[in-house]
Design a protein around this nucleic acid. Structure first.
Lengths: 107, 107
DNA sequence: CTGTTATATTACCAAATAGTTATATGTCAT
DNA sequence: ATGACATATAACTATTTGGTAATATAACAG
């Protein structure tokens, strides 16, 4: 396999179910590692491993509250996924119908 | 009981760069396997392998033209990704107005 | 200091992944 | 029927992934 892969492919990062779950948890509010562990099926090191990946992908940031590490969601990088999806939305979208009409008129 | 569907996690399916590339190629128009091979970095069996995965995920359909197998895009399943993304969009676009979103992405 | 709590890192392993070559299958042309 | 063409499948393999247990690091409490 001579495949040169990017260090952080966002698509691969969100492909993992547990990571998506963590992201979803942080959407509610920032949370400590312990809180996330409680709400996941993973061991503490397992969670920390995923958090590291999310951190390096820029999807979370951290702050500290005494001994606790608080993880905050930073969703902006997900824009990349959204952007890739853009040209496909027309295949199912109903919410862009008005826009399509608008564009048809413009041409 | 053998009702075992393959757990086709759509996120994992589109996580692979070559598969996204194939999907993008089929957005232009339906294409034969050979055409896709020409436009990829993969061997023919490599492409066929990915096509099978896409087929089983319902992201492509096939038709035949003599000896050629023509692959057609079927984007609907991507809706799932789009749906997951939905609550995150507000983080990078304050207004969810469809036209504004579209114009932002056109830049 | 000492012990406790919270998190990160290390070392290891099983399973999954994605690639290859070789081969099978199916269709067309002669 | 035979050979060429188009694609799929099989068999194999290196790499990556995601999990765990054990351990390190760091901050707080007394």
């Amino acid at each position: 396999m001579q495949n040169q892969r990017k260090p952080t492919n966002l698509f691969e990062i969100i492909a993992e179910t547990n990571r998506r779950h963590i992201i979803d948890l942080l959407r509610t509010r920032p949370r400590s590692v312990g809180e996330i562990v409680e709400r996941s099926q993973l061991s503490q090191p397992g969670v920390s491993k995923h958090l590291r990946i999310l951190r390096e992908a820029g999807l979370v940031t951290t702050s500290k509250e005494s001994q606790k590490h608080i993880y905050h969601l930073r969703a902006e990088p997900l824009k990349e996924i959204d952007h890739w999806l853009e040209p496909y939305r027309q295949y199912w979208s109903d919410r862009l119908d008005a826009l399509e009409e608008f564009l048809d008129e413009e041409e």
